[in-house]
């Protein structure tokens, strides 16, 4: 049990502390391809560090939900990092808390609380973005659930760790259902993390979707929301890497857990490279075309499910 706790600690701290780095690297490389020297790879840490020291401005009619909602969502993200194989390849302490589907429901819980917390500001700009996010939510949530199930059905269990091990077998890996689920989940990841062609981190308020959820926050709650965003990108990205794209190489044991952090770094460089190409060669879709993007992801995931049983 002590071993499992240490492994859990490495997995969770490895997630919380390393997640911003990947965003930093991705932004740096994106800047370099855009002809610039660009910011330090450690920029996300600098931003978080500064925000944690700043004052928190709260809209006059907002309640505690506005201030403490981000703390709760951060807590849920940390809980999810116990549950899914994002560093260590075997179940760790507290892993059985929820299964894959439960994990998907926890992601929904986060977005529910995040939306309420942001809307508590009563800002029209937040409402504008939330109304968009809400209208795509049905496809996004459905895809997340079906993708998780696509592999669950091929293995007969909804335990993410078993699925990871199952997919590492080449014949399972190359099966059509696995490949479809892989593509589908990647498309979903682009949407969930606000990457092109779905969203761009621009300055225009008129195009905001995800950015609107942090539009009114400041200081510590903002830091936690941003940090939570990095963790979310890391969690979903790592699931994609460990369960779908590259289910190989995880080492066990306490020392192995340290090795796994390095391994994840290597895997992430591959993901970052793919995203870099996508982010620098694509433009942002028209608003109502985003549903097409998600609909394709959803249909692929449903096909993946069908192929896995027939």
């Amino acid at each position: 049990m002590i071993d499992q706790m240490v492994e859990a600690l490495i997995q969770v701290l490895g997630t919380i502390l390393v997640a911003p780095l990947y965003s930093g690297i991705a932004e740096k490389l994106k800047g370099v391809v855009s002809l610039r020297r660009a910011q330090s790879v450690l920029q996300p840490y600098y931003d978080l560090f500064k925000l944690l020291k700043k004052e928190t401005v709260v809209p006059s009619s907002a309640s505690e939900l506005f201030v403490y909602g981000p703390y709760f969502t951060f807590g849920v993200y940390v809980l999810i990092s116990f549950v899914i194989p994002v560093v260590y390849p075997r179940p760790v302490f507290l892993t059985p808390t929820v299964d894959f589907l439960g994990g998907a429901l926890l992601f929904s819980l986060v977005s529910f609380v995040k939306v309420l917390s942001a809307m508590d500001s009563k800002s029209n700009y937040v409402a504008l973005g939330v109304s968009r996010a809400a209208s795509f939510g049905f496809l996004a949530e459905a895809t997340l659930i079906t993708v998780f199930f696509a592999v669950a059905i091929s293995t007969g269990t909804n335990n993410p760790y078993v699925e990871s091990a199952y997919a590492s077998n080449p014949s399972h890996y190359l099966a059509l259902d696995h490949l479809l689920a892989t593509v589908s989940f990647f498309m979903l990841w682009l949407f969930e993390t606000g990457k092109l062609p779905v969203e761009s981190q621009g300055l225009s308020e008129m195009g905001m979707i995800d950015d609107s959820l942090t539009y009114e926050h400041s200081g510590k709650p903002l830091a936690l929301l941003k940090w939570g965003g990095y963790i979310k990108a890391y969690l979903l990205g790592s699931v994609w890497l460990n369960v779908f794209l590259l289910p190989w190489g995880g080492q066990v044991g306490v020392l192995g857990a340290f090795f796994d952090i390095g391994l994840m770094f290597a895997k992430w460089m591959i993901l970052i490279a793919i995203v870099l190409v996508a982010e620098t060669s694509l433009a942002k879709l028209r608003l109502f075309k985003i549903q097409d993007h998600l609909a394709i992801a959803f249909v692929l995931s449903v096909f993946s499910l069908l192929f896995s049983v027939i």
Partner: peptide, 16 residues
């Protein structure tokens, strides 16, 4: 998290 980073310093202002 609150214990680690402390409670936020809050100031009220109208919505932006």
């Amino acid at each position: 998290v609150i214990a680690v980073f402390g409670k936020p310093r809050i100031r009220r202002s109208e919505v932006w």
